[in-house]
């Protein structure tokens, strides 16, 4: 059992990040090196400055807001929370003064980031059970939502336990010890990670996150890198 835990928490994490970084870089390169389209793909009437409208389209989803306002609320919450979550994880590696401009406890959001994210993911999952999105969906879509949901739920549980229920068996320092050791390539598993009552949450959280990262470059989640360029094509 210890070996499995070790594999998930150490080598698999390295493998996942390796596949994620290399895979993503290769996919981006492959697309970027393809010849450019010879004509404009713009939609009119045009609005200027084009780059500003491109940013608007990419990050604020105005067309979704116009046609599906409820979906838009979840979509915005999901993406904002996802971003906060990435920042939160940086803070689980080390203290960054710049991130403490607005003073806060680690982990960011007092547990609500994870909660909102879980609810948004459930919304995305359930809307896929309904026609016509059901017919449009392929297994990949469910697999990704499921992986994210499991990752977020197990990750958040650790956060909720600490922030809401005062659980002290697994402290921020323990996370920092584990994550920074991984970052400096001197893996060191604190006892809290393997022995505490909540270690199974960490193990499952990391396991599903690894799977997600490994699938990332080969999936539709590549839109996180391509969407800006595509929206620029539409804006001209």
């Amino acid at each position: 059992m210890d070996t499995i835990i070790y594999i998930i928490l150490v080598p698999m994490v390295y493998a996942a990040f390796g596949i994620f970084i290399l895979g993503t870089a290769m996919r981006i390169m492959k697309v970027w090196r393809a010849p450019k389209h010879s004509t404009t793909l713009q939609i009119y009437p045009e609005q200027k400055p084009k780059w500003l409208w491109t940013l608007n389209d990419t990050f604020l989803f105005p067309t979704v807001r116009r046609h599906y306002p409820v979906h838009w609320v979840f979509l915005m919450l999901f993406h904002i929370c996802f971003f906060l979550l990435i920042i939160g994880h940086f803070e689980l590696i080390d203290d960054y003064r710049i991130l403490q401009i607005i003073e806060h406890e680690v982990f960011l959001g007092g547990g609500y980031v994870g909660l909102i994210l879980s609810i948004a993911l459930l919304f995305f999952l359930f809307r896929r059970f309904r026609s016509p999105v059901r017919e449009l969906s392929v297994p990949e879509d469910f697999y990704l939502i499921l992986l994210l949901f499991l990752t977020v739920v197990f990750g958040s549980e650790m956060d909720w336990a600490r922030t809401w229920y005062g659980y002290g068996g697994f402290a921020v320092e323990d996370y920092r010890q584990y994550l920074s050791s991984l970052l400096y390539l001197k893996p060191d598993l604190p006892d809290a990670a393997t022995e505490s009552g909540h270690s199974f949450m960490l193990i499952l959280h990391v396991f599903f996150a690894n799977l997600f990262l490994m699938f990332f470059p080969f999936s539709k989640i590549m839109h996180s890198f391509f969407s800006l360029a595509m929206n620029k094509l539409r804006r001209g």
């Binding site: 697309v31 450019k36 389209h37 979906h71 999105v133 449009l136 879509d141 839109h223 595509m230 094509l233």
Partner: peptide
């Protein structure tokens, strides 16, 4: 070409185009 690859790689099948 590049644009075509973008379009082929990216759809999230969200159904906003319904």
């Amino acid at each position: 070409n590049q644009a075509m690859k973008f379009y082929l790689e990216t759809c999230s099948r969200c159904g906003m185009c319904t």
